[in-house]
């Protein structure tokens, strides 16, 4: 299946130019500064979410999970920074991303992390608030933590190899 059948890549590129994102991002410092903020956002996200996951898996016992969860808003702020700058990258050169298997896999990991997060709050969060500060949370909470951690490491991994799978290397991409 061709991504063009789902999304009109040319129209996205035109929109990016029309609203000025293209000019902003192709200016001397536009793209580099956006990349810096993309990584700063990711660091905040991983700090808050990744280390909460690690605590659920038994790292740093003694840190009360309920208290550690108060850092999650910083992770959300980081996520907002990374999503915004990521959106700017994609709108500047949509053909480099929408045909790119590494980028599509990265989005899949983010979607899985999102579903995992919702299920965590519905199914397991209450048991985590009641977990003693030296204790492990119940198994199902630990599974959510492990999935979350793997998803975000997967997001980073895919992000790092996006440049390796860039079109016109169409032979990388089974559906292009």
């Amino acid at each position: 299946m061709d991504a063009d059948h789902l999304i009109n890549v040319a129209a996205v590129a035109k929109w990016g130019r029309d609203v000025g994102i293209y000019d902003l991002m192709t200016s001397r410092w536009g793209w580099p500064i956006a990349e810096c903020f993309h990584f700063i956002g990711l660091c905040l996200l991983f700090a808050a979410v990744g280390l909460f996951d690690l605590r659920m898996l038994g790292v740093a016992r003694g840190v009360q999970l309920r208290a550690l969860h108060r850092l999650i808003p910083f992770g959300l702020a980081g996520f907002a920074i990374s999503i915004t700058t990521g959106f700017l990258f994609v709108m500047t050169t949509p053909d480099q991303y929408l045909h790119n298997p590494a980028f599509l896999l990265k989005l899949s990991f983010m979607l899985l992390a999102g579903v995992n997060m919702v299920l965590f709050y519905v199914v397991a969060a209450r048991t985590v608030w009641l977990t003693g500060e030296e204790d492990l949370p119940p198994l199902r909470a630990r599974v959510f933590g492990a999935v979350s951690l793997l998803c975000w490491l997967g997001v980073m991994t895919c992000g790092r190899v996006i440049t390796a799978y860039r079109p016109p290397a169409y032979f990388w991409c089974p559906w292009c």
Partner: peptide
């Protein structure tokens, strides 16, 4: 991510 994440927390 692990190094900076720990430092940020």
């Amino acid at each position: 991510a692990l190094l900076v994440g720990g430092g940020i927390v």
